[in-house]
């Protein structure tokens, strides 16, 4: 596990030299087991930073806010933002660069390798701890997680509480960075698409019943959209109003905004939402699993993204988030793309 002091040192150095506006990292939160995103502006505040197996958030999501904020400022601070990224998060940066949503000089990337481990799943962990507060949590040498609570130390095998996506991870160290902490130990899961295959193996009716039950739960809080670093569109199909509206937009244009789906949280409309969300992330999702983590109703949203990841790999040999210079999945094609389904 990467040493926290090394991380603080890197953050402090760039803040001291005023090379960055601020550093986005993790700090202790007051609300539960997981940390909160931290926005460190002063070198002395780096002491707040933490690094442990609960640092689950994909912080690249906040680059969207930063970009919007910058667009509103009259004289924006042009310095980059420092950001702490894990392997999966760094791939999100690659996609954002590939899509030219951000420029390389907008970010100073402090890469942190997950080495042989990853981050823990909050729900799995809280079941093990039964509401006890964590005092310290770390990996040992042998794939165990040592959790210290007021009742002492507990050793839990990592595989029991790691987040599902970490168990299927194909990139456990950052692929892009300005400074890298930790070792580039390559880890290859036995089958990165295990979860998807479980659903694929069900019958048609079983698959529908499964999704029907899951999607009926949705209350359309849009947390899955809001937390996603790729969901940066100014205008989203689920919004009731077109954000491209200006004072010059005519009444007719406004009236013609197509309502693709209704606000009613019923199955048919929830289906449209989740289908579109998933397909819009085809070839872009890097499986940081944030959408599924934040869902208050535990809808297994990751299964949708993962399915598209698998199809992109199988059909088009496409991997997202490794090469900022490759053309994106759906803006490119090959002559030999499969067409056996076409009549």
């Amino acid at each position: 596990m990467v040493n926290l002091e090394d991380l603080k040192k890197e953050a402090k150095a760039v803040l001291k030299d005023e090379k960055v506006k601020y550093v986005i990292g993790y700090e202790k939160s007051s609300n539960g087991l997981m940390p909160a995103p931290a926005f460190i502006k002063k070198p002395e505040d780096v002491e707040k930073l933490i690094w442990d197996p609960t640092c689950i958030h994909n912080l690249t999501r906040f680059l969207t806010d930063e970009k919007q904020k910058k667009a509103r400022e009259k004289q924006p601070d042009e310095r980059p933002v420092g950001i702490i990224v894990k392997g999966c998060d760094s791939r999100a940066l690659v996609v954002l660069l590939q899509e030219k949503f951000i420029n390389r000089e907008d970010v100073y990337i402090i890469g942190v390798s997950c080495e042989s481990a990853g981050v823990v799943d909050e729900k799995k962990l809280s079941k093990k701890l039964k509401d006890k507060k964590i005092e310290n949590i770390e990996f040992d040498e042998k794939d165990n997680i040592i959790v210290t609570t007021k009742d002492g130390k507990t050793k839990i095998p990592a595989s029991e509480i790691l987040a599902e996506r970490c168990l299927e991870c194909r990139a456990n160290f950052p692929v892009i960075y300005d400074v890298l902490l930790g070792e580039k130990t390559k880890r290859q899961p036995e089958n990165p698409f295990q979860s998807v295959e479980k659903i694929e193996s069900l019958s048609e009716q079983e698959r529908w019943d499964f999704w029907k039950e899951q999607l009926s739960k949705c209350i359309r809080c849009y947390a899955c959209r809001s937390v996603c670093p790729m969901c940066y569109c100014d205008e989203c199909v689920v919004d009731t109003i077109n954000f491209a509206v200006t004072a010059d937009t005519t009444a007719e244009e406004k009236a013609q905004k197509i309502k693709w789906l209704e606000k009613s949280p019923v199955l048919s409309e929830n289906f449209v939402y989740h289908f579109i969300r998933a397909i819009h992330l085809a070839g872009r999702c890097i499986d940081c699993g944030e959408c599924e983590r934040v869902c208050p109703l535990d809808i297994p949203i990751r299964f949708l993204n993962k399915k598209l990841e698998k199809d992109a790999k199988e059909l088009f040999d496409y991997d997202s988030g490794f090469d900022p210079d490759q053309p994106s999945l759906i803006s490119s094609f090959r002559d030999e793309d499969p067409e056996d389904f076409i009549r």
Binding site: I199, E200, E204, Q205, E206, R207, W208, D209, F210, W211, K212, F271, F275, A278, I279, A282, L304, K307, L308, D311, A312, L315, F316, L329, I330, S331, S332, F333, D337, P338, E339, F341, I342
Partner: peptide, 18 residues
């Protein structure tokens, strides 16, 4: 060609939903 790619994904995803 773009359509072929996109529709392949849509078709598979619809199938995945049942």
């Amino acid at each position: 060609y773009y359509a072929r790619r996109r529709i392949a994904l849509v078709k598979r995803l619809l199938d995945y939903f049942g």
